[in-house]
Amino acid sequence: MMNMALYKREMKGSIKLLIIFAAVITLYVSVIISMYDPELMKTLDSFTEAMPELMAAVGMTANAASLLGFMVSYLYGFILLIFPMLFCILRGNALIAKYVDKGSMALLAAAPVKRRTIAFTQMKVLVSGILLLVFYITILEIICAMSGFPGELDVTELLILNGGLLCLHLFIGSICFLSSCIFSDTKYSVAFGAGIPIFMYVLQMLANVGGDAEKAKYFTFFTLFHPDGIIAKESGAAAGILVLLAGAVVFYTLGIMIFDKKDLHI
């Protein structure tokens, strides 16, 4: 069902983008993990206490009791959400809508390949990119933690946590992919494919601040990804991850079906 020639060509485009995001993530992850120190943590906590609303908005909390808790506080509320999300947005739009908008889809559709195969292949390209990025993040975190603080990191918990992170970004990618399949114009594909995840993240930031704004958590899917709950093995956190994974499967499947029946005007 997958066209290998198309997959290889599109993966080359993904690799270039992945290298850029991997470089940026490497900088942030390596620097933040290297800052794990009981004395320095007191300084970071003082910033959090001085600007509680600002730090809470990007998911940063004080008083982390372990290296993994420290990583959750300073990586999983902003850095590891935003950059993979940007990858999903940029790549998701380029795989379907950009081809249709430029008229290049005529070349693909003219080949003896079913539309469903084209859509499934492009979906595999996006999913593969997300898998590679999360896999790289995991390896990077393990290397940085073990080289700087041997024996401090619970690798099993990190793998479970990043499994949840993967499900979150697969879900975000599915929104971008579905938007790309629905709209033939890239401006609409980007408006919805980028606009929905970004708006959801803004709602999550408001919810993190607390107070009356905390109710915003009921209107954003980011609430389903709860790093602290995942580490604590809470059933609610596990359920949230399963919902994200199920939603991703539904949206990817729906995107393929819509593209298969779509009037491309070519």
Rank of each mutant, 00 (worst) to 15 (best):
A145Y: 03
I143Y: 07
A110Q: 13
A23R: 03
A22W: 12
M4E: 11
G210V: 04
A50D: 08
L44W: 00
K98Q: 15
L153F: 09
A62M: 05
A64C: 08
L68R: 06
Y99Q: 15
E49S: 10
T26I: 12
T156F: 13
Q204I: 07
A109Q: 14
I118F: 05
N162F: 06
V127M: 15
L108H: 10
T61S: 14
N3H: 14
L80M: 08
L264V: 08
L206R: 01
V134W: 02
A216P: 00
L133V: 05
A237P: 04
M60W: 04
C176L: 00
G92D: 03
G163P: 02
S14Q: 10
A246T: 10
K187P: 09
G13K: 04
F177E: 05
S128E: 11
I33G: 14
I15Y: 06
V243A: 06
I20L: 09
H265P: 01
S147H: 01
T61P: 04
I231P: 11
L224P: 01
I89Q: 08
R9K: 13
A213C: 03
G148Q: 08
T220D: 12
S147C: 10
M55F: 06
T43Q: 09
D228P: 09
S179Y: 01
L81E: 13
I198S: 01
S184T: 14
I172R: 02
I25Q: 03
G255I: 08
I172N: 04
D45I: 13
A23V: 11
G151V: 00
L54S: 06
L131K: 03
D212C: 02
M11G: 07
A191S: 12
C144M: 14
I160H: 00
L80H: 02
L90T: 08
L18C: 10
S235A: 11
I258F: 00
F21R: 10
I137G: 05
I266Y: 11
I33M: 14
M146V: 13
V127C: 13
I19C: 15
M85D: 09
K187G: 14
I137T: 10
D212K: 07
T121W: 11
M11S: 08
I241L: 09
L133S: 04
I196H: 08
I139L: 15
N93P: 09
T61H: 12
I137P: 04
S66G: 00
I118T: 09
A62C: 06
A5D: 06
P52Q: 10
P227C: 11
F120R: 13
G247E: 04
D185Q: 15
I172M: 05
G210D: 04
